[in-house]
Design a protein around this nucleic acid. Sequence first.
DNA 1: TTGAAAGCGCTAACAA
DNA 2: TTGTTAGCGCTTTCAA
Lengths: 337, 337
Amino acid sequence: MAVTINDVAKEAGVSITTVSRVINGNYPVKQETRQRVEEAIKKLNFQPNPIARSLVCRRTNSIGIVVPSITNMYFTEVVDGIEKYARNNSYDIFLNITNGDAKAEINAVNKFIERYVDGIIVVDPQTENMLSGFYDEIVNTVPVVFVNGYHQEIDLSFVISNEENGFKNALKHLNKTGHKNIIFVRGESSYSYDLKENIYRKFIKNIGSREYILTVNAGNSIEVVENTKKSIINISSEIKLGEDFTALIACNDLMATGALNACLELGIKVPDEFSIIGFDNIILSQMTTPKLSTVDQNMKKLGEKSAEMLFNYIESGYEADKVLINTKLILRESCRI
Amino acid sequence: MAVTINDVAKEAGVSITTVSRVINGNYPVKQETRQRVEEAIKKLNFQPNPIARSLVCRRTNSIGIVVPSITNMYFTEVVDGIEKYARNNSYDIFLNITNGDAKAEINAVNKFIERYVDGIIVVDPQTENMLSGFYDEIVNTVPVVFVNGYHQEIDLSFVISNEENGFKNALKHLNKTGHKNIIFVRGESSYSYDLKENIYRKFIKNIGSREYILTVNAGNSIEVVENTKKSIINISSEIKLGEDFTALIACNDLMATGALNACLELGIKVPDEFSIIGFDNIILSQMTTPKLSTVDQNMKKLGEKSAEMLFNYIESGYEADKVLINTKLILRESCRI
DNA sequence: TTGAAAGCGCTAACAA
DNA sequence: TTGTTAGCGCTTTCAA
């Protein structure tokens, strides 16, 4: 049996109220008494029971993280950022993986609320849950911060990476280094893919060159690497890579890696004959040969920032807010410099 | 304010005890009464407060996972396996990332115990904590299962992948497909590297060929890819890759990827001129060109199995046990078949 | 500056 | 089959 506040009170010859006071330091206690209590605490190696505390205070010193997947390096880094920040503030973390299922996301959030978590971070929330208004009442109960995902006209708190900006810069760089005809690779359905496609379209129109949009399956899972590779090899008979089109920009690094693999197989030299730029800057992008140029989303910072916001809400109350995190073009070896 | 058992009792016109009984179904309740209570529960949308429950039952329906890192794809898959299994059994998960720090590991475990978690899984525990006897008393308080890590003569519960077996098979395959002189790549210090080195040494002696052991820095982090690449390029002036040595076996897929990158840069054709086999079967191994042959550790299964064991302990009491998970040689494109 | 006592929401003896 | 009651370990009024 663990030692309780009662044991400490007896040992120190005071009431449990007094012990509680020295633990929390929220009421005056005579210096001498405090010392006696502190000694008793040390002697008995007393740790206040957080469960009992939570029951009365409605505070658990824990937060919940909801994330679509954890085998995806992208999310993993966000979680890592959150975890570090939370631990530094001595918060514990509940983790729930939804596999991108909207129902599972709702269940996760509800379970967290039941558990009295002090706050919730949802990474890449399902768009349908954003639109259904599910979260609108939730935030009256417990603060919630979202990391990326659909946020147009949604009056909730977000940390969002400035994808527009990064993507535009990548495109500009490609153009500046002599590329005119640029292939765009995207996955099937996602707010972020649409966003990038729009930018791509406008840009291509602007410089008066040819569009080529390649849509591949399974945008965010491992398979997308292989899928992209095959797609590119397929179209390589139709359009001349390195001549008709001399560059490619992808919606994420997995797709870019697939493109790189295709070039390797087709004997097209990157970056001499063909340039490739990815997006995200997951660690994979440093492991390829040549190393991928990409746009850094700074996932760790996304995580840290979301945690920081959440803790502010926990302390000072919730208020919808959107924070934009800058992205940065990282030039490595897969494109001209 | 959330609805409590009291509200339900009033609504149904019974005592809270009766409500508790129908919730838990552990004592007889008249059919008719039960129905009334159930209706009240539904009507008020009552959810029992798990905190109050935990306080009296000393059970939280949660487990703690301690893991060195989460940006490492290897651990990530183990955690994923645990999470799935736990969620299927409607357990929630606390996650703690130690960054391989022994003190942090101890803190994590202690915090979990304070929180009354029902069980703990420690992935790749720090050897010094295993040896110091820290866990010996812990397991009297709460069941703990370890995934891999140092386990010689340690009388605790482990799920261990059979690395010996898988590594030996890889070596045999290399030899069977005509390779005699095989390079061995390892990281600096780890039980698992030593184990593999011993097997390698014996094997090489047995077939009467030349040893070549390459030790690279930062065994388990991203940098090891680049470090390995550089090391291989370095030694390539000293020993002729593809002639003196025609194959390479690495302690993990990151190192193998580095080796692959080196070959790419040196213009050595894999697998035509040089064979490479990695270890672990992280998803990266499917993303390289050529795809890596490797030894599957089945991390997901390691995770699932450890969760399964833990739940058994939670139900039926703890008892030290070691479970071996088989590894499997996966032949892809980076070695002769 | 201190203590007694109520209560957080629930479970489980015990009694009826 | 049901209800009364005493906790679980803590915080926080209220009174002294």
